[in-house]
């Protein structure tokens, strides 16, 4: 077996598994060829790395994590209560109510009931009620 054949077999593994005879001639070649041996060793390193990585398992709470995140997002989706409040129609109705209340309160504040404005003659302004004779006294007279 030459280097090209050996290297092709190394890089084709595991898709193309060599026959026992090929494997034997590969082993013989690898013992004598440093370059092919290095290539084979590198392939084994890659295999080992992939095998080690595959041993790492996904977070056991992944489903819970994902569902919690989805729930959070759904709460902010266009159909959720909070976002529904930001709907233009809802906002228009709310603004109308606020405006009506404001106008009502303002109208109520500006209204002043009619007051008695007739001027009291000056001579009556200084009348001393205490000094006046009581009506009862005059009746008894």
């Amino acid at each position: 077996m030459n280097c090209t054949e050996c290297q092709t077999k190394i890089t084709s593994y595991p898709e193309e598994k060599p026959s026992p005879e090929t494997l034997q001639s590969m082993k013989t070649h690898l013992q004598s060829c440093k370059n092919c041996r290095a290539l084979y060793a590198a392939s084994v390193w890659v295999d080992t790395f992939v095998t080690e990585e595959k041993r790492i398992k996904v977070n056991p709470f992944m489903t819970t994590r994902v569902m919690a995140q989805i729930e959070k997002q759904t709460a902010l989706s266009p159909n959720s209560g909070l976002v529904r409040l930001l709907n233009p129609q809802v906002l228009l109705v709310a603004a109308s109510i606020v405006l009506a209340l404001f106008l009502g309160v303002s109208a109520g504040s500006f209204y002043q009931p009619a007051t008695f404005t007739e001027q009291v003659p000056e001579e009556f302004q200084y009348l001393n009620d205490a000094g006046m004779e009581s009506l009862t006294y005059l009746i008894n007279e």
Binding site: K34, R37, A38, Y40, A41, V44, W45, V46, D47, T48, F49, T51, E52
Partner: peptide, 27 residues
């Protein structure tokens, strides 16, 4: 160092942190 014949199988080989980092870098 090139691995010796005895431990040249993915099952028997344990990569060091440096070796793993090298494979990762090349990947």
């Amino acid at each position: 160092e090139m691995p010796s014949d005895q431990n040249l199988t993915p099952e028997s080989l344990m990569l060091t942190t440096e070796q793993s980092a090298l494979v990762q870098k090349e990947l």
